[in-house]
Amino acid sequence: MNILLAAILKVIGVLMFVGLNAYILIWGERKVSGHIQRRIGPIRVGGPSGIMQSAADILKLMSKEDFVPSGADWWLWVLAPVVSVAPAVLVYLVLPIGRTLVLRNLNVGLVFFSSVSSFTLLGIFMAGWGSNNKYSLLGAMRAGAQLFSYEIPLILSTIGVVMLAGSLTLQRIVAAQTHYGWFIFPQIVGFIVFFVASVAELNRTPFDLAEAESELVAGYFTEYSGMRWAMFAIAEYSNLFTLSALGVTLFLGGWHGPLLPGWVWFVLKSYFLVFVGIWIRWTLPRVRIDQLMDLGWKFLFPVSVLNLLGTGLYLMVR
């Protein structure tokens, strides 16, 4: 009974964090983009710096008409937002938040992360197919090509870290960084590949071809509105946080840091990477689809394989 209660509390905690994270990041993205474009962003909707803007957004989204496009594949269309949110929530299970603070210390935590997050694409595809809209389908196809191409360098770039740490357990990978120092230094190539590929995995500019608004309206979620659309947004911002948190875990020393408690460092570093992601989004223009594929297959993929070879050689001669 206690186990069940603890599990329920953990789930509620994670869901609350997912909601709060989306709330803060939607507001944060607006503020950061505003300042990058020499505007001031939202200021009028209550609180300091317009912090209530997201609350107004939520109210607006909840009061919208629940609309199903004609000719939609009903089951796929309705299930697609749920299917995209589920993996976004599940990956919190293995994130090492503090020295002893992790929901479940799986011995294959990294594999769990990548396999669960590969389901995101399923939600995107269901949305694109179910909407009965050619822009949605094209967006889903692009997302499929893109996520499939960038998942390979993303996973390969993490394997260098796994080889150095000698474990797939995320807690052990963090612990190994007391010995080596942060893995960003020996694995700088891996980190660069990881970061570029994770921006592409998140479908954010400069890799936002799946929802390129000047070409595809909004890509796979063109036909969604109200809370159904909000679920896609929540999943997107949750993925932004969790992938940044994975980057912190693998390359930036996880919860290691002086003075402050471990979980504070973990959250601070993760939000720093999130900030870099937002910064990149509002700075760089969108790439073309052929440039995207060239970058993925002709640059990131060989570089990550070479990185693996180099790491292997180092481990051999050490």
Partner: peptide, 28 residues
């Protein structure tokens, strides 16, 4: 555990994406 996760990663993830891709192309 490991086999289960690899099953998800490879079959339910990567292979099925290719599958959907081919089907999407055929049906358009």
């Amino acid at each position: 555990t490991f086999l289960g996760l690899v099953q998800v990663l490879l079959y339910a993830g990567a292979v099925m994406v290719l599958f959907l891709f081919v089907l999407g192309l055929l049906s358009t």
